[in-house]
Amino acid sequence: MQFKLIINGKTLKGEITIEAVDAAEAEKFFKQYANDNGIDGEWTYDDATKTFTVTE
């Protein structure tokens, strides 16, 4: 399945899409990606669109 991350950071904005087995695997990848890029904010997930959003 495809999952999307929308980044609304103070210094980094954009979107990335990955293939993952389930939402838990996608969330783990996205949170590591955000951590690696210094993004720390509020997370939301929309199951209907398979979209995670992080907002700083």
Rank of each mutant, 00 (worst) to 15 (best):
A34T: 15
T44C: 03
T49E: 14
V21C: 04
A26Y: 00
V54I: 06
Q2K: 03
F52K: 00
K50M: 02
K50S: 08
F52R: 00
F29W: 14
E25M: 08
W43S: 01
Y45I: 03
K28L: 06
W43P: 01
G14L: 04
Q32D: 12
W43D: 00
I16Y: 04
A20T: 14
F3M: 02
D36S: 13
T51Q: 09
E25H: 10
Q32A: 15
E25S: 11
F30L: 11
E25I: 10
D47V: 07
A23C: 07
T55V: 06
N35W: 10
K10M: 03
F52I: 02
A26C: 02
T44P: 00
K4D: 08
I39N: 02
N35L: 14
M1K: 08
T51Y: 13
F52S: 01
G38C: 04
I6C: 05
A20G: 11
E15D: 15
F30G: 02
D46I: 06
I18K: 13
D46V: 06
L12W: 07
T51W: 05
Q32R: 11
A34I: 05
K31S: 09
Q2S: 14
A34L: 07
N37Y: 09
F30K: 00
E15C: 04
D40Q: 11
M1L: 10
G14T: 08
K28Q: 03
K10A: 10
A34C: 02
K4F: 09
D22I: 04
V54W: 01
I39V: 07
T55A: 15
V21G: 09
F3D: 00
T44L: 12
D40W: 03
E25C: 02
I16R: 09
D46F: 03
D22M: 06
W43K: 00
E25Q: 15
T17H: 15
E19I: 06
T11P: 08
Y45M: 04
E19H: 11
I16M: 09
E27K: 06
A24Y: 13
F29Y: 05
D46R: 04
Q32W: 14
T53D: 02
T44E: 09
N8I: 05
E56I: 11
A23G: 15
D47I: 12
E27P: 00
K31I: 06
T17N: 07
L12P: 03
T51R: 11
T11H: 13
T53F: 09
G9E: 11
I39E: 02
V21I: 14
N35R: 13
Q32N: 11
T11M: 07
T53P: 00
K50E: 05
M1Y: 07
E19W: 03
L5H: 00
N35C: 04
Q2A: 12
Q2C: 02
A24F: 09
Y45W: 14
I7L: 12
K28Y: 09
A24H: 04
F30V: 10
E19M: 14
G38I: 13
N37F: 08
K31C: 03
A26F: 00
A48Y: 05
K10Q: 04
Y33E: 02
N8C: 07
K28C: 03
A20W: 04
F52Q: 00
A34Q: 05
D22S: 08
L5G: 02
G38F: 15
E19Q: 03
A20F: 07
I7A: 06
M1H: 11
E27D: 05
D22Y: 12
V54G: 00
I16K: 14
E42C: 08
A48P: 09
D22C: 03
A24P: 04
N37A: 13
I39L: 08
D47N: 15
T55E: 07
T53R: 13
T51I: 08
A34Y: 08
V21D: 09
M1S: 05
L5V: 04
A23N: 15
E19R: 02
E27S: 04
L12F: 11
W43V: 07
I7D: 01
T44D: 06
D36R: 13
A23T: 13
G41T: 01
K4C: 02
I39F: 15
K4A: 08
A20M: 07
G38M: 12
K31L: 04
D22R: 03
Q32E: 05
A20R: 04
D40F: 13
Q2V: 14
F52W: 12
Y45A: 01
I39M: 07
N37K: 14
I6Y: 14
A23Y: 04
D47Q: 13
D47G: 07
T55C: 09
T55L: 12
L5C: 02
K28S: 15
G41L: 03
G9P: 05
G38W: 13
E56N: 10
V21R: 06
A20H: 06
N35Q: 13
K13S: 11
K28A: 12
A20L: 10
T51M: 12
L5N: 01
D22P: 02
N37C: 02
